[in-house]
């Protein structure tokens, strides 16, 4: 019997993986740091596309929050498909409103904006300094992030730039929920380039691979293994 029944209605779509950059563009990021950041994110985009090509059921949608005196959308708030995503140049200026950036992120991680069924979002924070928001604001923002359903489930990574004395390691550690990984410390432009590429592709792949599991035997979120060591010809620090 010929079967020419039209398929039932309903919009079909691939699984959406929401990817958020949170990038510091405070004055201390000037020079090599911001130049390397701009370059690294641009170079990571085709790598993410290539990595996710093995998972055609996944659609990566990307957004970016930039923060200095304030936190604003660099790309967004509407998510942009990875194929359409373009990274506008960042120019360093101002302070380091990390708490405000986290707050902006939280506003997009509610179950009202992201359905309960979905892949864990990827959130990568890149910073070289101390949060300059009023004291306690950062901890409050992190506490709220940890109580936001998708904030808890997200793959959250932090990349620190420069010398350990320049940035607030405990502060950045609170953003990361990758216990084995801690924070990624980029002392040199080459390390920053590598970490941004590695973190963005590995986190995207890990989220894409995540699928139904027995919740009661799986207590932790998606966990990433440490990155391979950076083989570098240049050790010149920032």
């Amino acid at each position: 019997m010929p079967n020419d029944i039209p398929a039932p209605d309903g919009k079909v779509a691939r699984r959406v993986l929401h990817f958020f950059w949170l990038t510091d563009y405070s004055a201390s990021m000037g020079g090599k740091k911001i130049a390397t950041l701009n370059q690294a994110i641009r170079e990571s985009l085709p790598l993410i596309q290539k990595a996710v090509a093995a998972h055609p059921q996944v659609q990566v949608m990307m957004r970016a929050i930039k923060f200095s005196d304030e936190a604003t959308w660099h790309v967004g708030p509407a998510p942009v498909s990875i194929e359409q995503f373009f990274w506008p140049e960042l120019q360093a200026d101002g302070l380091t409103a990390t708490a405000k950036a986290v707050r902006l992120l939280i506003s997009e991680l509610s179950v009202e904006k992201m359905p309960r069924r979905g892949l864990p979002p990827v959130c990568i924070l890149v910073s070289d300094g101390y949060c300059t928001d009023p004291e306690g604001e950062y901890d409050k923002a992190i506490a709220d992030l940890n109580h936001t359903p998708w904030g808890m489930k997200a793959i959250r990574l932090a990349i620190a730039i420069g010398d350990e004395s320049d940035y607030n390691e405990p502060e950045l550690l609170k953003f990361s929920n990758q216990e084995k990984l801690g924070i990624l410390k980029a002392h040199t432009p080459e390390e920053l380039l590598n970490f941004i590429k590695w973190a963005s592709t590995e986190a995207t792949l890990s989220s894409s691979r995540s699928k139904s599991k027995d919740l009661t035997s799986e207590t932790s979120n998606v966990a990433l293994s440490p990155p391979p060591p950076t083989i570098t010809s240049s050790t010149e620090p920032f």
Binding site: R116, G118, P120, P149, K213
Partner: peptide, 18 residues
């Protein structure tokens, strides 16, 4: 009704302890 405690791609299972 949908189980509001489930988020993401995790699920309960026949193999769950409880």
């Amino acid at each position: 009704p949908k189980d509001e405690t489930l988020l993401g791609m995790v699920t309960y299972s026949l193999s769950s302890r409880d």
